[in-house]
Amino acid sequence: MKKIAIAIDGPAAAGKSTIAKRVANNLGYTYIDTGAMYRCVAYYALVKGVDFHDENAVCRLLPEIKIKLMPDNTVYLNDRDVTSDIRVNEISAGASIVSAYSKVRTYLVAQQREMAKEGGVILDGRDIGTVVLPNAELKIYQVASIECRALRRHNENLSRGLNSDLDEIKKEVAARDEADMTREISPLKKADDAIEIDTSDMTIDEVVAHIMNLVEEKTQ
Results as ranks from 00 to 15, higher is better:
145 S>T: 09
92 S>W: 07
148 C>K: 14
93 A>V: 11
201 D>S: 09
8 I>Q: 04
20 A>K: 01
100 A>K: 06
185 I>Q: 14
209 A>I: 11
88 V>R: 15
156 E>M: 07
148 C>T: 15
74 T>R: 07
160 R>Y: 07
138 L>M: 13
146 I>V: 12
49 G>Q: 07
27 L>N: 01
95 A>V: 08
119 G>K: 15
61 L>P: 11
145 S>W: 08
163 N>E: 03
39 R>N: 01
171 K>F: 14
211 I>C: 02
69 L>K: 14
49 G>F: 00
105 R>K: 01
17 S>M: 08
70 M>D: 09
80 R>P: 10
220 Q>H: 13
184 E>G: 11
136 A>V: 08
85 D>F: 03
176 R>W: 00
70 M>Y: 04
2 K>F: 02
137 E>W: 04
136 A>G: 09
186 S>F: 03
177 D>I: 03
124 D>A: 00
70 M>P: 01
27 L>V: 00
84 S>I: 08
69 L>H: 11
102 S>Y: 12
38 Y>A: 05
219 T>G: 01
45 A>D: 06
140 I>N: 08
9 D>H: 07
41 V>R: 03
188 L>D: 08
23 V>E: 01
131 V>K: 12
182 T>N: 15
129 G>H: 10
148 C>E: 14
85 D>W: 04
15 G>A: 05
101 Y>L: 13
9 D>S: 08
128 I>M: 00
58 V>P: 13
155 N>R: 07
98 V>G: 03
76 Y>D: 06
52 F>K: 13
83 T>M: 12
135 N>P: 13
86 I>Q: 10
156 E>W: 02
58 V>G: 13
196 E>K: 13
118 E>K: 15
75 V>W: 08
26 N>C: 12
37 M>C: 04
116 A>I: 08
186 S>D: 02
63 P>N: 11
184 E>V: 15
115 M>Q: 12
82 V>C: 09
30 T>M: 05
122 I>Q: 06
173 V>F: 09
83 T>P: 09
38 Y>I: 02
80 R>M: 15
10 G>E: 02
103 K>M: 10
78 N>V: 10
162 L>I: 00
